[in-house]
Design a protein around this nucleic acid. Structure first.
Length: 427
DNA sequence: TCTGGGGTCCTAGGACCC
DNA sequence: TCTGGGGTCCTAGGACCC
């Protein structure tokens, strides 16, 4: 049978990006930390072999890292995003039928390509990515997304695969062997809650799950359960989405460098988070009808609280000033100065495209729409300046009320590819 | 002292209507 | 006055993904 699609997954992506500019770190244990240097989000094979789990909190592992000479990096997400785009460009030259699923994974539709040997094709793509971008990948080929994910996992774990596995080209017993070796918790769509529930039903492996009756799976685990069983049996439930999904929301959030009860600090954080989220809306030519700000205390401490304020806009907007002032105003009314706040999130949702907003009960009048255009062109000018001269070249004064909320990034690598001042120097 | 950030989708429950 | 069923919409919370 022909595989309809391929999943291409970068190995230890963030670590691989750091190693691009630090070849001396090959074969050494390396980890990349989340923002605020909180916990481990990417591990080299050597770090995995030391038993460092995903999500390991830095404060618990500091000594361990020192003792085992683990090299740590603060997340340099600008760098990873840039490398990700290079990979997407290369893949798009192979086929335009590509779904960028995440920063380090893409699905490719193979049905329009003329391929005689799928394994050889996979190895060639893998070789090109290694040669032209420098990132090692694993490739799974199959008839459904869930099986392609499974193939990628096997390809990653089994060195004999050469980083490529075509499940569609295997005999049924061979395929079942791979499914039988995959713990059910590793199946795409089975998380930490579903996994014990499945085991309680006697379902321990991907093979067990594939043999479950679809109706029973739906009764027990909802529509997702049914889809997983079908996909494991080669019945496609999740189509490839080459144009990406229509965005539903934009969220921007940060843990503070230290907990705070001061409103000015929080106001600065909200202004900054709103500026980033609204700028993202503008680059995608979207406007928001609703904005929400969440203010959380530390959820790892007793008495965890969440404050939530919503602002609605009769005229959808991507104007940082309008959104931020409404959110700050709402927050001020609900603010409790006796709590220590740990984190803020700004969510922009109920999105509409700029073009779709041709007529509106409130925006139709000449003055109102002229006002909107003015505001948009002013903000676009700011975006252009910041794009050319660096982020925050022009920004709102309220963002500067305090810098106390800014996260820590003590071990960040340079912005090698996105900032002139930080280009790597050879010599 | 210190445990990420950014998303999507589904479901349950309440309000409301016919 | 009391009764039931069904539908929709909204929201909050949970589960999953990377």
């Amino acid at each position: 049978m022909k595989p309809f699609l391929a999943l291409l997954d970068c190995n230890n992506f963030f670590v691989s990006c750091e190693r691009l500019f630090r070849p001396d770190l090959t074969c050494r244990p390396v980890v990349v930390l989340s923002s605020n240097d909180g916990c481990v989000v990417s591990r080299s094979d050597e770090a995995k072999a030391l038993g460092i789990p995903m999500g390991a909190p830095l404060f618990q592992y500091r000594r361990f890292f020192r003792e085992h000479e683990v090299v740590q990096f603060s997340g340099n997400f600008e760098l990873y995003g840039d490398i990700s785009q290079r990979i997407t460009r290369l893949l798009s030259s192979i086929t335009p039928q590509i779904e960028v699923y995440s920063v380090d994974e893409s699905f490719l539709d193979l049905s329009q390509l003329n391929i005689s040997d799928y394994n050889a094709w996979g190895r060639a793509v893998r070789g090109r990515l290694l040669q032209e971008v420098g990132i090692p990948v694993s490739i799974g080929l199959a008839t459904t997304k869930t099986l392609a994910k499974l193939g990628t996992e096997v390809a990653k774990r089994d060195p004999r695969s050469g980083g490529v596995l075509d499940l569609a080209n295997l005999s049924p017993p061979e395929r079942e062997t791979h499914l039988a070796r995959m713990p059910v918790g590793d199946v795409w769509g089975v998380g930490r809650r579903l996994s014990p529930q499945l085991r309680a039903e006697g379902v321990y492996t991907a093979l067990d799950l594939s043999r479950m009756r679809a109706r029973l799976a739906q009764q027990l685990f909802g529509i997702h359960g049914r889809q997983m069983v079908c996909e494991l049996n080669g019945i496609r439930c999740h189509q490839l989405e080459p144009f990406g999904r229509v965005r539903q929301s934009v969220m921007h959030g940060r843990q503070f460098g230290e907990d705070t009860s001061q409103f000015a600090v929080i106001e600065a954080a909200v202004a900054n988070l709103t500026a980033r989220a609204a700028a993202r809306l503008r680059t995608e030519q979207l406007l928001a009808r609703t904005a929400v700000v969440y203010l959380d205390t530390n959820r790892h401490k007793p008495g965890y609280r969440r404050l939530q304020c919503t602002a609605g806009f009769d005229v959808p907007t991507a104007d940082t000033g309008i959104i931020a002032s409404r959110l700050v105003e709402a927050l001020e009314a609900a603010f409790n100065p006796h709590l220590g706040y740990h984190k803020a999130n700004v969510l922009l949702c109920d999105l509409v495209s700029e073009q779709a907003l041709q007529t509106n009960l409130f925006g139709r009048g000449a003055s109102a729409s002229a006002g909107r255009d003015d505001s948009l062109s002013r903000l676009r000018a700011i975006d252009t300046i910041n794009g050319r001269y660096g982020p925050r070249t022009v920004h709102y004064a309220s963002e500067d009320l305090s810098a106390a909320w800014r996260p820590k990034r003590q071990s960040r690598s340079p912005h090698y590819t996105t900032c002139w001042e930080e280009l790597p120097v050879i010599g």
